[in-house]
């Protein structure tokens, strides 16, 4: 079971969190023209990376904040975690 450092609460076990997918996906702005391809990429197309992956988790049984977790999908190593509004350098 993963051990995730919630930037708001500290180290917590995975069973307090819910997975939310790729954190690098950016929703297109509202009220703008979006091509089929762009929209498909946003809704459906994801890379299944082996290695470092920035992903979203929600601390659903804790502070309910969505956070970003930088994790290796092969080794499960977690490198860094970020608040929702933190820029990932």
């Amino acid at each position: 079971m993963l051990y995730i450092n919630c930037p708001h609460c500290g180290m917590r076990s995975q069973n307090e969190f819910s997975y939310g997918g790729d954190a690098s996906v950016k929703r297109p702005e509202l009220n703008i023209e979006v091509s089929d391809q762009e929209w498909d990429n946003f809704v459906y197309n994801r890379k299944s990376l082996r290695g470092k992956h920035l992903e979203l988790w929600q601390h659903i049984s804790g502070c309910r904040q969505w956070i970003k977790v930088e994790r290796d999908t092969a080794t499960h190593e977690i490198f860094r975690t970020f608040k929702a509004d933190e820029e990932v350098a």
């Binding site: 929703r27 979203l56 929600q58 309910r64 969505w66 929702a84 509004d85």
Partner: peptide, 13 residues
Amino acid sequence: LSHLEYYLQLVWP
């Protein structure tokens, strides 16, 4: 609820 929180925290903060 999670859906609303997602948009408020991540998409339209």
